Computed example of a mutant assay.
Amino acid sequence: MTIILASSNAGKLREFKDFLKEFKVRNYSEFIAPFHIEENGADFKENALIKARAVYKALKSQNPKALKNAIILSDDSGISVKALDGAPGIYSARYSSDIVEHPTEASNRAKLKSELDKKGVFSSPAFYTAAIAAISDIGGFSECVELGFMHGNAIADERGENGFGYDFMFIPQGYELTIGQLSEQTKEALSHRTQALRAILPHLKALAKG
């Protein structure tokens, strides 16, 4: 059974491979040329489905053999900060698009720090959300979406070297270190993506059994 990940993010690919060890996890770009997917959904669930459907449709037309015995898996995730009225939320990956033409993880973190500074806030309650969508032709076409969360605080500082995205600015509930300062094992246990993967895993295993 192959999991085809609808993402080009190396950090996400590594996390999916670490969790889904019983599956062969491959990036969709191994089967077709990468392409832009417009994430215009109203929430994380919608965006996760948009990505999974886009990759499924592209594979169906360009490389249908890749879909045999395979599951398309996508995720949409982001951080919501209370002091910023829930921002950046679903716009987490492109939060700094009003500042730079091509937002990067570094430019997004810089904007988050700037926005917290403007509020005069160093630390604010925040939470991560991950929505994971699975699409497959196995046993007939099916779609499934599950959510996972991680609560804690966002800070106007960057600490640590482990992780990606906003991990260096997020302290999970019950900890004093940022995700970027914690070990991979601890991060994996706490991760919003891990929680969503745990929720969707029974569906994936059911598909694997045919």
Rank of each mutant, 00 (worst) to 15 (best):
F122L: 08
I37V: 15
R94L: 06
G210R: 07
I90S: 00
A133E: 06
A154M: 02
V81L: 02
E101G: 13
I37L: 11
D167E: 05
D18I: 11
S61E: 15
A6I: 01
Q185A: 13
S74L: 09
D18W: 10
D75C: 00
G210Y: 04
E38F: 13
S29W: 15
V55I: 12
G89A: 02
F164D: 08
R53D: 11
R53A: 10
A126C: 01
Q181I: 06
D18Q: 11
K205R: 12
K60Q: 12
F122D: 10
L177V: 09
V25D: 09
P202R: 01
F164Q: 10
K209P: 05
F168L: 14
E105N: 13
A133I: 01
V100P: 09
K60D: 11
P88R: 06
C144D: 14
N27E: 15
N69Q: 08
G180E: 03
A83T: 03
A52P: 09
K12L: 02
E146P: 05
V145P: 01
G89T: 01
S123V: 07
D18S: 12
R53G: 09
G180S: 00
A134V: 03
E105S: 14
E176A: 11
F31I: 11
G89K: 01
Q185K: 14
H192C: 04
